[in-house]
């Protein structure tokens, strides 16, 4: 299924917005992490595709960060080749499978994020390379966080309490920078230039 790149039915601007499925998605909300759960409930997690009705990760009052899993962030696992200057952590290397970077602020990766690698940030994530692994922006529940990258081919995207997965089959996409954010309850991927204010026509 390569429908991630197909135009959806949503009429709203900007024109670059893409949508994978236009129908209602059959999703099961993931319930609050440590809380009690009726054992009779449908146990298995369904993760929705990008740009659909993204599944809220937590229904509890307190946003639950999935990838970070409690306090503190796994910053002790930060690899060499990184520089933190307060709010933003710069990772000057490619993150390979099994490597994990967690940071309270924003994370910028000067390199790729390969499948099996994870980037978790309290703020935004920018990958100056290909994002093929898992990225969790706004991991403390900030749904305004964004994930931007030169090539967005993530296995899974998590923003705030929303989670979305790549469509099954070959992951393809345009060879241009893109940005993912939560809009109207779904994780949307768009070309980067239309992420902020519309650029003035010259």
């Amino acid at each position: 299924m390569k429908s991630r790149r197909s135009k959806g039915s949503q009429a709203s601007p900007p024109a670059g917005r893409r949508q994978a499925k236009s129908g209602p998605a059959a999703t099961t909300p993931i319930d609050e992490a440590p809380g009690p759960l009726a054992d009779a409930c449908e146990p298995l997690v369904e993760v929705d595709e990008f740009a659909t009705d993204a599944t809220p990760l937590a229904t509890g009052e307190q946003p639950v960060s999935l990838a970070v899993k409690g306090e503190p962030l796994r910053s002790e696992l930060i690899l060499s080749g990184e520089r933190g200057d307060g709010d933003t952590l710069l990772v000057r290397k490619t993150l390979r499978s099994g490597q994990h970077v967690g940071h309270r602020g924003n994370v910028v990766v000067l390199g790729d994020v390969n499948p099996g690698a994870e980037v978790v940030a309290g703020g935004d994530i920018v990958v100056l390379g290909a994002l093929r692994g898992v990225a969790h922006a706004g991991a403390r529940g900030d749904e305004a966080a964004v994930v931007a990258g030169f090539r967005l081919r993530p296995t899974q995207l998590r923003i705030g309490n929303y989670i979305a997965r790549a469509p099954d089959g070959d992951i393809t996409g345009p060879e241009l920078p893109e940005v993912a954010q939560v809009k109207e309850g779904r994780v949307i991927i768009r070309p980067y230039h239309s992420a902020g204010r519309p650029r003035p026509r010259l």
Partner: peptide
Amino acid sequence: ENRIVYDVVDVVEGFC
């Protein structure tokens, strides 16, 4: 692969 949220380590460590 793209559906993984929790894993066996999360289970034994009590995260889920």
